[in-house]
């Protein structure tokens, strides 16, 4: 592990170590890692070994993949990043929600937005029934209550067509 202050003074790239909740360590350049606000603050406080108790190895690997790619971001490779993002959000809901929680914890705003948008896209224009199916949510309304809520929001369903598909 590179000691922080001396290496940055000599112009070498300052390295940081992230430790997942499973105990695995990842060594990364500071310039990559500071995309993440939480870590940035810790670096500013002088830490170079950063334990991330809320992030397991699998999730952290994904997040590092994201941060590495986005650290390369320039004006010219916008398209590439876009495609990367597209690929990045593919995956099961379980993985995505793990990532959202981690991104939230680590304060990586770009990743947060990317993931939330992708999850929101799954809800977009879906019928109530489809949303329930997709997220496997059980309906906890009584029939009366459901009727009441439906009444209150009638306007949203006049003339609109909804996607009943589950993808």
């Amino acid at each position: 592990m590179a000691s922080s202050s001396s290496s940055s003074k000599t112009g070498l790239k300052k390295m940081l170590t992230l430790k997942s909740s499973d105990g695995d360590e990842f060594e990364l350049e500071e310039s990559i890692v500071i995309q993440c606000q939480t870590i940035k603050h810790m670096v500013e406080d002088g830490f170079s070994l950063i334990p991330l108790q809320n992030v397991d190895t699998k999730t952290l690997t994904k997040i590092i993949e994201y941060m590495k790619k986005h650290a390369e971001k320039t004006e010219s490779n916008k398209e590439e990043i876009k495609n990367f993002n597209k690929e990045f959000v593919k995956g099961s809901f379980d993985d995505q929600f793990e990532l959202v929680s981690a991104a939230n914890y680590l304060h990586i705003n770009g990743l947060m937005d990317l993931l939330c948008q992708s999850i929101a896209d799954r809800i977009n224009n879906k019928s109530v029934r489809a949303v329930r199916e997709i997220f496997n949510i059980s309906n906890d309304y009584t029939p009366d209550e459901e009727e009441k809520v439906r009444d209150e929001h009638k306007w949203a369903h006049e003339g609109g067509e909804f996607d009943e598909s589950l993808d």
Partner: peptide, 14 residues
């Protein structure tokens, strides 16, 4: 990220 219509759909989910 959702539209008003989608939010309303959500209100009826649970």
């Amino acid at each position: 990220f959702l539209s008003p219509e989608d939010l309303v759909a959500c209100t009826m989910v649970c």
